[in-house]
Nucleic acid binder design. Structure first.
Lengths: 339, 339
DNA sequence: CTGTTAGCGCATTCAT
DNA sequence: ATGAATGCGCTAACAG
């Protein structure tokens, strides 16, 4: 339907008085071309407003110059940040990203992945994702693959992750240092979230900090939500209902922290006077909480950039190493020294 | 690098004892094929796990079976909703979306658009966007084009929009009906936002409602922000500073409404006891405001779906008509009857 | 209904 | 350094 440019490499060749191959050469820069001819070609390209046909290019070369990015539905600040980072890092390269959306459903994710593969992407970045490890390993066999924000055993050298356990450990430590002894944790069902082990790692960090401090983690101070704000609210109800005293709550993400905040408010508990509160994600949407929420910032953009760079190195067979990314505790007024 | 499938249509042809063209025919369904052969082909495809080379397909057919979607940086709930709608509507079609990100910068947008065009998209959906009208018209010449959430004079039959003026009118009417006479409006600079006339339309709806009610809009009750939360806060300062009494504020978007809320709080003004407040967008991130914010919900997903459907009809030369979408007022507790 | 013949637009050999 | 020739994998006439 679309009336695409009809200008082909042949037209340029004629216009510039050279052969098509020469045009191709100046285009790709893969072979030396005398300056005069190069000029002629460039001018012709300009004059005719020539745009190479990417399909023909890819068909002939076997490269698509695209890299596939599999995400899970937009909207999450952390994942969105990773996307931004990827986009930024790809900008100066010849590769352009094409997206697939897994929508947090394995079946959808699988199809999206397949679509990307069918489009002959030269490389693949999977952000999070639910696909079983075996499948991921299989994909990695077919195409250069980098996984962001998820650790897959057996391909850790291609996984960029954030040290969630350590971050959670530090958050909990901070509460301990502020004198809190009875620290509740709002987590999310491991079962439900399957491979999203981030949440579980946060739980582990929490446990470790307590244990090191000589405090036995109390199951009664653990509440399970589903990462939603609503579930945070309900978590408070559960905790309060158990009649185990607590002076601080560490929520596994900001959304739940907001719910917690609301739940405390409804129970007449004030933050931070009665209960200190820490979240996780540095979700900017919580900016208008009063008092502002102490939380953990994950370097999403940086991680995205690193993922893209790693992938390009991988495609080009270059060596590439990277460390686990460190998250940082953002201290704000939702935590007070225990009275 | 990637070891793509080496299976070609020839292999299938051989395996199924037919000619390549026949295979192509069963693949595209564009021509009748005897059942027996079709079966044979299908089995062969299955057996060899054949995946057509999209580049070869596109090169030969001139169609890419992709539709380009130009967005502006993820994160905005309204635009994200439109994207979801587009994705959903495209799901059952043979077209797959490829995204471009304009990042709210004309230069970037232009490049992104060009990239999409270079990829020979069969159609284009531009969500919002800043490109001057002339350019949009030019693009529309090159490729089937649908514009979502923006009205472009001269191609209104290809623009899906939401009736912002009417929605704002109704929001203001509601305040009037609640007995408010002095209603302030927080808008955004028309100059700054250039083509984003939504905000201006909201202003117009506000004016119309007042005028119809026999109230002369008071310039002193108008404050200009930039859609950010921060600017909402400052708007309150301006309004309060002018010492013109008001009992209600209608903000042009939820983000500013949140800022307004904060500003009022700092001034010791309570919502809704002292001042009633209405926003616009039904931004879920405001869910934890107390009291909940009365706002306007725009049917983003529906609009996205409609846009995708319209585009496909356009590509196929089918006729397609649609109405302006209606937003709806979501009444919550941030508005009180005037005491 | 189906096989045969030509390209689609370009990147790459290969000679020169 | 550069032109000519070949083919990437597939679809689209064109005959039959």
């Amino acid at each position: 339907m679309a009336k695409e440019t009809k200008v082909t490499i042949q037209d340029i060749a004629r216009e510039a008085q050279v052969s098509p191959s020469t045009v191709s050469r100046v285009l790709s820069g893969n072979a030396p071309v005398v300056a005069a001819k190069r000029e002629a070609v460039l001018t012709a390209i300009e004059a005719l407003d020539y745009r190479p046909n990417v399909f023909a290019q890819s068909l002939a070369s076997g490269q698509s110059l695209t890299i596939g990015v599999l995400t899970q539905r937009f909207g999450n600040p952390f994942y969105d940040g990773i996307l931004s980072g990827i986009l930024q890092a790809l900008e100066p390269t010849p590769y352009s990203p094409i997206f697939g959306d897994g929508r947090w459903q394995t079946a959808v994710e699988k199809r999206a992945l397949q679509t990307l593969l069918d489009r002959q992407v030269d490389g693949l970045i999977v952000v999070g994702g639910l696909s079983p490890e075996a499948e991921m390993l299989a994909y990695a066999q077919q195409v250069p693959l980098i996984v962001a924000a998820r650790e897959i055993p057996g391909m850790s050298s291609q996984c960029l992750t954030i040290d969630n356990k350590k971050a959670a450990y530090e958050a909990t430590r901070y509460l301990l240092e502020m004198g809190h002894q009875h620290i509740a944790h709002v987590t999310a069902s491991i079962y439900y979230h399957g491979p999203i082990t981030d949440v579980y790692q946060r739980y582990q960090g929490y446990v470790q900090a307590l244990t090191e401090a000589g405090i036995q983690p109390d199951p009664q101070l653990l509440a399970e939500g589903d990462l939603s704000q609503q579930s945070g609210l309900m978590a408070v109800e559960k905790l309060v209902g158990r009649e185990r005293p607590f002076t601080a709550i560490f929520a596994a993400n900001d959304q739940m922290a907001v719910g917690v905040r609301l739940g405390l408010y409804r129970r007449g508990l004030r933050v931070p006077e009665d209960v200190s509160l820490i979240g996780f994600d540095d979700d900017h949407n919580t900016a208008y909480l009063t008092p502002p929420l102490t939380t953990v910032r994950q370097p999403a953009i940086e991680l995205g950039q690193a993922a893209a760079e790693a992938l390009i190195d991988l495609i080009n067979g270059r060596q590439h190493t990277f460390d686990t990314f460190q998250a940082s505790l953002i201290i704000r007024e939702s935590v007070a020294r225990r009275r």
